[in-house]
Design a protein around this nucleic acid. Sequence first.
DNA 1: TATGAATGAGAATTCATTCAT
DNA 2: TATGAATGAATTCTCATTCAT
Lengths: 194, 194, 194, 194
Amino acid sequence: MPKIVDHDEFRQELLEKYFDLFAKTGYLNVSMREIAAQMGVTTGTLYHYFPNKNNLLEELFYMASRQDTSEALAKIPNNATLAERTKVFCEFVEEKEVYFQDIVLLTIDNFRYKYLADHQDFTLINEADNHYGNKIAEGLELDDKYGFMLAIFLNGLVYHRLVFPDSVSFSEQIQLFQEMFTTFLQNENNIRKE
Amino acid sequence: MPKIVDHDEFRQELLEKYFDLFAKTGYLNVSMREIAAQMGVTTGTLYHYFPNKNNLLEELFYMASRQDTSEALAKIPNNATLAERTKVFCEFVEEKEVYFQDIVLLTIDNFRYKYLADHQDFTLINEADNHYGNKIAEGLELDDKYGFMLAIFLNGLVYHRLVFPDSVSFSEQIQLFQEMFTTFLQNENNIRKE
Amino acid sequence: MPKIVDHDEFRQELLEKYFDLFAKTGYLNVSMREIAAQMGVTTGTLYHYFPNKNNLLEELFYMASRQDTSEALAKIPNNATLAERTKVFCEFVEEKEVYFQDIVLLTIDNFRYKYLADHQDFTLINEADNHYGNKIAEGLELDDKYGFMLAIFLNGLVYHRLVFPDSVSFSEQIQLFQEMFTTFLQNENNIRKE
Amino acid sequence: MPKIVDHDEFRQELLEKYFDLFAKTGYLNVSMREIAAQMGVTTGTLYHYFPNKNNLLEELFYMASRQDTSEALAKIPNNATLAERTKVFCEFVEEKEVYFQDIVLLTIDNFRYKYLADHQDFTLINEADNHYGNKIAEGLELDDKYGFMLAIFLNGLVYHRLVFPDSVSFSEQIQLFQEMFTTFLQNENNIRKE
DNA sequence: TATGAATGAGAATTCATTCAT
DNA sequence: TATGAATGAATTCTCATTCAT
């Protein structure tokens, strides 16, 4: 009798472990042997669930892109002001900074793998991005371009503090940005979506 | 007397060639053999000029940070307003967007290399970052934190458009940011350095 | 189930093959590629069984020290006189002279490898040496210092004839030494262990 | 005008430096670049004085083999007893133990190089050995075989303490050996040369 | 004489992947 | 399903030697 294992569930389990373990080291810099060892399976088993290393990376990216926006949206109270809405996103990222650093690194790895593999299609990757931008805009009740603007600044901050730790203060920078962002947008009547 | 070659000058020449050739592919993904071949030298020669691959990366990064800032600062006219000053930096990055995407990738590679090598000191890399931040602040005639803020947004934008090409318009985003940034800072009398 | 191979047994098999093949040439002068080729495996396989070249040397040395002493001790008859006991060790080395020349070369290689690697600890190598000294003393039923004395002379002889072949006669030298050694020790009542 | 340099004298100077610097590391394990650097010359210059690396080693061995025996012989007083004569050699080696360890290592390297190079002639190497043996016998006023015996034991002791530091006491071992050696030989009337 | 840039084969080691069991 | 032994090309880096100057 074979072990009773739900194939997809186990795949998911492996992916989550992989994500936590290897972001900083670089997904591409970790050998399949190491991945397998850390996950408590053998290389053979790993290949049973993922046809090759690139596929593992792709799946990982896909998984990560599905998470988190809904979590942030849920934190926005009813009838919140723009300042309050902005604050929710900023604090969400601040609290999960390390996680978002991992996302940045994963995204770069994924980009590289795609780029290396002869400019393969970026459908998945762009879809994931749109997802983020749209959801933030939706949360802010603003036009998409302002959703992206906030996303860009937060990404920039996460990236910056990843590669240059301690060069800037997270809270100082987001406080400044929030002030600037909300002041600016409140004065522009036309920017609000109907 | 040996063959007439200026050691430092040739190093520089190699660095520049290398930078042009390989940024997109990922510095870590290109083997020293390939690098040498593309540069028209042998591996032995390459190692004559750079003790190891890590050093090649570091030197490249350091070189870039010095060049960029002095080039950008030179573009600021005398008696320029804050809006004009900000514009110089934004346009500088816009014009050289592909170049700065390479810098982002190089920075990540450099980070990973250091991180892998047992959390080595990031002195050089942080120094380069501070240099960017300080020089931008100097160009803006503002406090350092605003220099970093602009740097963070521009980095975020470059990163974003690198991994999610065409998701946002560079010019739209910088236009919005410039407005927001200058409007906000002009109203705050206290932020201006004496 | 994997391919049926007893990991430890195959390691041992490889060690023995290696020992026979390469002692004279110098363990360090043979590349891992050559070793693998001569053993009929690939480099990958070799590294599957030994983490690095250094470890291969160490294991080899350790293996040798255990085998030799137990083999020699087994040859000592019950109720043997000191002269007979001494003779067993001398003849053991004489019979396996070429083998012990290999051990000398291996020992030097091992020493150098350790010395080069930043004066690493010589624990294993010293343990092996103590083992030799103690076991010889045990076989002679004498104090350790006399065990080492015999070991030193035999080592000296092996070394001498290795680098200066035919300069002295093995049998002549050990005959002289045995006479001298046993005559001397029989007159010293106090040296015998109770 | 060329620099006034006595070719042979400079060769000699280089050899002596080389001997001191690289014994422990292994003459063959040091690159020509390192040798040159440590000697304060360039590789080009080094090759001006020695046609290749093997020749450097050979010359080094030749140089070493010419030294020292005369120095030891000079220390023997007139009308010295056998015990006194033996003592001179033992103490000579004890005082210069590190130097003799280097000689052992050099001899092994030389042997290996000869052996590797298709069993080249060992003339030089054997000549050097005979030189040692004969001179010791001459100093002891005994038959050559006893000269070699002492040489073998001293070599054995030096070798042993090189690779197994602190395993035995130099002075204890030579004291024991001297007693044994002289007691034995004084009782054997026939061994004395006429 | 002396320099040191250049060479390129070869070193140890790693690694994604396959496949017999 | 699961194992882990086996593969062999690729990686970073070293080094004795040559040679234009």
